[in-house]
Amino acid sequence: MANITRDEIVHIAKLAMLNLTEQEIDNYTKDMQEILAYAEMINKIDTSATDETIGATEQKNKFRKDEVMEFKTREDLLQNAPSQDEGMFQIPKVIN
């Protein structure tokens, strides 16, 4: 199963919203083949009677009251926006 192909890398990059150059596609195809070939070792372990780990600790869900809290001002939150207008994040027109 480790025989990941160039086409699969192109597909994965599309899912991950990344543009790759031809050179990057070649490099990542080779890297993924090597890394996944190494990772395949986990198939040697019998996990038929094992559950997946859900969290790092045994802790169950933590509930808290749903309270309204002020989180800074709108200006503070918008200060890092690459483009904003009238207190809103600005993006190009989506629907033509």
Binding site: L36, I42, T47, E52
Partner: peptide, 27 residues
């Protein structure tokens, strides 16, 4: 790492990699 992570979570590979790794984590 984004490519590797997206791959192991993608349809068809999720069980073989991600789920399997979570089980080995338990062990």
């Amino acid at each position: 790492r984004i490519i590797l992570g997206t791959y192991v979570l993608s349809s068809g590979y999720y069980d073989a990699y991600y789920k399997k790794a979570q089980k080995v984590r338990t062990i």
